[in-house]
Amino acid sequence: MAFSGKKNGVVLKFVELTPAKTFDLDHFKTLLSERTKLVSVVHVSNTLGCINPVSEISRLAHSYGAKVLIDACQSTSHMFIDVQQIDCDWLVSSGHKMSAPTGIGFLYGKKEVLESMPPFLGGGSMIADVFLDYSTYGELPYKFEAGTPAIAEAIALGVAIDYLNSIGMNEIHSYEAELTAYLFQQLDKIPQIKTYGPYPNSQVEGRAALAAFTAGGVHPSDLVTLLDQEGVAIRSGHHCTQPLHYYLGTPATARVSLSFYNTYEEIDVFIKALNNTLDFFHNVSG
Rank of each mutant, 00 (worst) to 15 (best):
A209P: 08
G95C: 11
K110M: 08
K272Y: 13
H239A: 09
I267Y: 06
Y264F: 14
Y64C: 05
S236L: 05
T180D: 01
D222A: 14
V54D: 07
L17A: 04
L140I: 07
G109D: 01
A100Y: 05
S77I: 02
M126R: 12
S33R: 00
G5R: 12
F281T: 02
V41W: 04
L179C: 09
L12R: 12
V284S: 04
G217Q: 10
G9V: 04
T36W: 08
L25M: 14
V92L: 15
N165K: 12
E139F: 09
C50N: 15
L278P: 07
G286K: 10
F280S: 04
G65F: 11
P141D: 07
V232C: 05
L107K: 09
V10C: 12
V204F: 05
I151Q: 13
C50E: 15
Y261P: 03
V15P: 08
S125E: 02
V39L: 10
D89V: 07
T36L: 10
T241C: 14
A61P: 05
D71H: 06
C240A: 15
A181G: 08
D129A: 14
K194P: 00
K67Y: 11
T76L: 09
L274Y: 00
K6H: 14
Y261C: 01
M169E: 01
R235S: 13
S55T: 14
K189P: 05
T241E: 12
E178N: 12
Y175I: 10
G147N: 07
L121D: 04
Y64A: 01
V113I: 14
T195H: 07
F80V: 07
I51M: 06
T214R: 03
V41C: 13
Y182V: 00
E145F: 03
G216C: 10
C88A: 15
S45P: 05
I161W: 00
S99T: 12
A209L: 05
L107N: 11
A72I: 11
V204A: 12
Y163M: 00
L226S: 02
D162V: 03
S33W: 07
T277V: 15
A100L: 08
G197W: 10
F80D: 08
I190Y: 06
R207Y: 07
A254W: 07
T30P: 04
A252E: 07
R59N: 11
N52Y: 02
D222W: 13
N52D: 08
T36V: 01
Q192R: 09
V92T: 15
L179I: 12
I104N: 06
V41Q: 04
E171Y: 08
L164S: 09
Q185Y: 07
A20M: 09
P198C: 08
F3R: 12
I127C: 06
I190A: 01
G249C: 05
V218C: 08
R59H: 11
